[in-house]
Design a protein around this nucleic acid. Structure first.
Length: 879
RNA sequence: GGGCGCAUAGCUCAGCGGCAGAGCGUCCGCCUUACACGCGGAAGGUCCCAGGUUCAAAUCCUGGUGCGCCCACCA
């Protein structure tokens, strides 16, 4: 079968994906005869299309799972998508807004219908994109966080946690997004530093001309103050404690009290207490039984408690309050001040802390065992430094606000009684109130935080709470690949929930993939216009090229900067592979490995070298895959294929393959074996081209490379002696090429070469492989030996163990030759000096390991020999 | 305020105690019949700075500088 001159990925990739799918290779079965290896996908949000971050994340998962599948594991990659409550509701609302509608115009049921329609469209698109990426997901096991099975798991978990007292409903300060109109959890708030102002406001005292000055960045919230607090030990304010202040503008009377929470060194040292809109103040208020006055409506406009300032936007309210305070002479100081302000993660609106009745999960007890499993190493984080981030958060964990005032999500399974106010939490809709049996009950309007269902993903995907065979076999999963940005949102919560409900860790290893940036290091984002669509690259370069580039660029602990030049380079590499196989196939006509074993074949040095290099490559690739060093996997294969197989072995085997030589079979055998093993090694990284090429092999061992056994290095292939010999020959050949290039002798123009060496082994090596020089250095006549006369004028090169002369009299520039040799002489002398210094150092001789000392000795001997040769040659040149 | 990461060739990055590496880019020369998506060759580095540990430091320690990220209820 002959191949086209260049590889064209178009058509190839989708074809083989379909082939694999039809063969059922992706399906993981419960198969006790094999060890399991399972992954659950980080379910992409159904908000839209996949971006480069997804491409990286899923490529890495696919590389590992393909490797494990080939390596004898029963693999299963559970795919699926996330309903992404707030994010998806937002995109659909935005779409509605273009039609001039709000979700309220549609009503809850109709709106949910619209979101489902959206989900169908994008869920499907995401599946197609994952397929385009080559992901070998088990599509028979696709999940959605809001589908029936996953909803049942959510229900079960909620009810159990409630019954265990780990879920409660309470009035607390929460973060409120005035635009999304919902409560948020602490980690959904993104803080940004902002240059603002610290306002100092004087509060008059009742029955006195004195004033107490407080400092605040949010003057408008003074309208909801219910106290002023000072530190109990603050001498400046001791006499104010117990007095009453008159709240400016509203003229309300509020107490001045003492509380340890006040920082004496901040601002004026006196704190205005706004229990309804500040967490610290809320706690102070609880300690002192202060009332909480709410100032804001849910859209962050002021309510009736604002008096004359009612009905204003919060920032307009601030402006007016400041104006009036200034007019009243109570704004005593304004100083520039930088502070962090919270924004809604999903819409960037400034969040409002406010007091609200919400559902919470008590986290401390859940967190403790989850800290321990990571501490004990039962779960391993890669890179390990992320454990610190995890511990810091887990050790200071706060209760998780899980209720959201949204429509898209898991409805909270709690029913409120209109008559007695009792809450009934139940797996099914209760017929009546559990306390008073009233039929006037209604389900809680709120839905759960989308991460609540994500936290159950490792077991909900396997059918929990049913006791499925999948759970028994595939849980815990083997590996989780995700971004470090969701350690708290997702990873931590999965560990807690997995331990609590399964009694087992959800995964053994967590691999954190880097954030993908563009060439200039900017975050890839659609809104910045810096995003690159993976599918566009698939079209242009092929998905294999993208996958290879992503893997090669992925180093642990660094952001990944994706460069199109690198993708182009990967594409050329694929073309190189293509052509290597094309070359081989041209020379393997009718070749079969049957009845051939390499022990019986007349293997040449280059054959033994090639197999030895193959063995080392297999070792390195395996080791690197096991340690998730994807860059090493890619770069090792790149160098092996291009720099060793193609540049040396293929070139050397050409004459042997061209005619009926006695050692032709050996060359064919090694070539075939090496390529076949290499295709297998490459397959996890670049599945499509390797399958395309595998299918061209005449006696492939399996019907698909995807199910071929992953290579294992045979110890019989390892041949250190062959490697050493080849290394010397390579050095000699490169030296001749360098000399030729320096002299401007065009490659292809034949030339004579002399190699003078006193080392009989080297002499023998060069003698026996003179055809190497002919083939790779275009040498037509080679003389080797200890007695080779040094030509006076010829260009020369001095190595540690040999001298090389090119008798090309006409081309010699004597002066240049001298300069070259003197330069090398100087360098060698300096190095020898350093080596001798070390060897004369008694501390070095006493303390350094013997092999280092030995290496230093050998090196200094070689240098001495080289120096002697250089000097003799220089003398000859008349220096 | 606390923590983490990074600084190595023009660019992007490996290397993390024992002769400074790769890819891309640049320069020179080649259509050598697998591949010009290619072949051969070359140039290019105070390994951020200052101390220290060590027989030996790009690599370990301390401090500094510069970038980037995360966390934090001093309002």
């Amino acid at each position: 079968m002959s191949l086209s001159k260049a590889y064209d990925h178009r058509g190839v990739e989708d074809h083989w994906y379909k082939f694999w799918e039809e063969k059922g290779y992706f399906h993981g079965r419960v198969n006790p005869s094999k060890p399991p290896f399972s992954i659950v996908i980080p379910p992409p949000n159904v908000t839209g299309e996949l971006h480069m971050g997804h491409a990286l994340n899923n490529t890495l998962q696919d590389v590992i799972i393909r490797y494990k599948r080939m390596d004898g594991f029963e693999t299963c990659w559970f795919p699926g998508t996330d309903h992404a409550g707030i994010a998806t509701q937002n995109v659909v609302e935005r779409k509605l807004a273009k039609e001039g509608l709000t979700r309220h115009d549609l009503g809850r049921a109709k709106f949910i219908e619209r979101v489902w329609a959206w989900k169908e469209k994008y869920g499907h698109r995401i599946r197609e994109q994952l397929k385009a990426l080559g992901c070998s997901c088990d599509w028979e096991r696709e999940s959605f966080t809001l589908d029936e099975i996953r909803s049942r798991a959510v229900l079960e978990v909620f009810v159990r946690l409630y019954e265990e007292g780990l879920i409660y409903r309470g009035e607390r300060i929460i973060h409120w997004c005035p635009r999304c109109q919902t409560a948020l959890s602490d980690i959904e708030v993104v803080y940004e530093e902002k240059e603002g102002t610290l306002y100092h406001i004087a509060y008059p005292l009742e029955g006195s001309f004195e004033k107490i000055v407080i400092a605040t960045t949010r003057p408008e919230t003074m309208l909801a103050d219910t106290a002023v607090a000072v530190h109990p030990q603050d001498e400046r304010y001791r006499r104010f404690i117990g007095k009453t202040a008159i709240l400016p503008l509203l003229k309300r009377k509020i107490p001045i009290l003492a509380d340890e929470a006040v920082d004496r060194d901040f601002g004026s040292g006196a704190l205005k207490v706004t229990p309804a809109h500040d967490p610290t103040d809320f706690e102070i208020a609880q300690r002192h039984s202060l009332p909480a006055v709410k100032l804001f409506n849910l859209d962050a406009t002021t309510n009736q408690n604002a008096g004359a300032y009612q009905g204003l936007d919060r920032f307009e309210c601030r402006r007016r309050v400041l104006e009036d305070l200034k007019r009243a002479g109570l704004l005593v100081k304004e100083e520039p001040y930088v502070y962090a302000i919270g924004h809604c993660q999903r819409c960037q609106t400034i969040v409002e802390p406010l007091i609200s009745k919400q559902w919470f999960v008590r986290m401390k007890e859940l967190a403790q065992p989850a800290i321990e499993v990571v501490r004990r190493g039962e779960i391993e984080f890669v890179p390990a430094r992320w454990t610190k981030i995890y511990f810091d958060w887990m050790e200071n964990i706060r209760d998780w606000c899980i209720s959201r005032q949204l429509w898209w999500g898991h409805r909270i399974p709690a029913w409120h009684c209109d008559d007695c106010g009792q809450i009934t939490v139940s797996r099914q809709t209760p017929p009546a109130c559990s306390a008073c049996s009233s039929k006037n009950i209604g389900q809680d309007e709120d839905v759960l935080d989308t991460w609540f269902s994500s936290a159950l993903w490792p077991f909900s995907t396997m059918g929990w709470p049913e006791e499925t065979p999948e759970l028994k076999y595939f849980y815990p999963t083997s590996l989780l690949v995700t971004g470090p940005d969701i350690i708290f949102f997702w990873v931590a919560r999965m560990i807690m929930m997995g331990l609590h409900f399964m009694g087992k860790i959800p995964f053994k290893t967590v691999l954190f993939n880097p954030i993908v940036k563009d060439e200039k290091g900017r975050r890839m984002s659609k809104s910045l216009g810096t995003g690159i669509d993976p599918l566009e690259l698939k079209e242009q370069y092929g998905m294999d090229a993208l996958r290879f580039t992503l893997a090669a660029s992925m180093t642990q602990g660094q952001d990944l900067k994706l460069s199109l030049a690198d993708v182009e380079g990967a594409r050329k590499f694929l073309n190189k592979i293509w052509n290597a196989v094309r070359f081989a196939l041209q020379h393997l006509e009718g070749f079969s490995t049957e009845r051939l074993s390499f022990e019986k074949l007349p293997l040449q040095l280059e054959d033994r070298w090639m197999l030895s290099r193959l063995a080392h490559t297999i070792e390195t690739v395996r080791k690197s895959l096991d340690s998730y060093d994807f860059d090493l996997v890619a770069n090792t294969l790149y160098h092996f294929i291009w720099g060793e197989l193609c540049d040396w072995y293929l070139e050397l085997s050409k004459p042997r393959l061209a005619k009926e030589a006695p050692d032709k079979k050996a060359a064919q055998y090694v070539l075939y074996l090496t390529l076949k093993e290499t295709l297998k090694l490459l397959h996890p990284l670049v599945p499509f081209i390797t399958e395309e090429l595998w299918q061209k092999l005449s006696d492939r061992e399996t019907e698909s490379v995807m199910i071929a056994p992953f290579p294992r290095a045979l110890t019989a292939w390892v041949d250190e002696e062959a490697e050493r010999s080849m290394q010397i020959l390579q050095e000699l050949i490169v030296s001749i090429r360098t000399m030729r290039a320096a002299l401007g002798v065009p490659p292809g123009q034949r030339a004579k070469a002399f190699i003078r060496t006193e080392d009989p082994q080297i002499e023998r090596l060069a003698q026996d492989h003179r055809h190497f020089f002919q083939q790779l250095a275009w040498v037509e006549e080679l003389a080797v030996g200890p007695k080779i006369e040094r030509p006076k004028q010829a260009p020369r090169k001095v190595l540690e163990y040999a001298e090389i002369f090119l008798p090309l009299d006409g081309l010699v520039n004597l002066r240049r030759q001298r300069d070259l040799l003197s330069h090398e002489l100087k360098e060698a002398q300096e190095e020898l000096k350093k080596a001798r210094l070390r060897l004369n150092n008694t501390d070095f001789l006493r303390k350094a390991p013997p092999e280092i000392i030995e290496r230093e000795r050998a090196r200094s001997e070689e240098l001495a020999a080289k120096i002697a040769r250089l000097e003799e040659n220089l003398e000859l040149l008349g220096a």
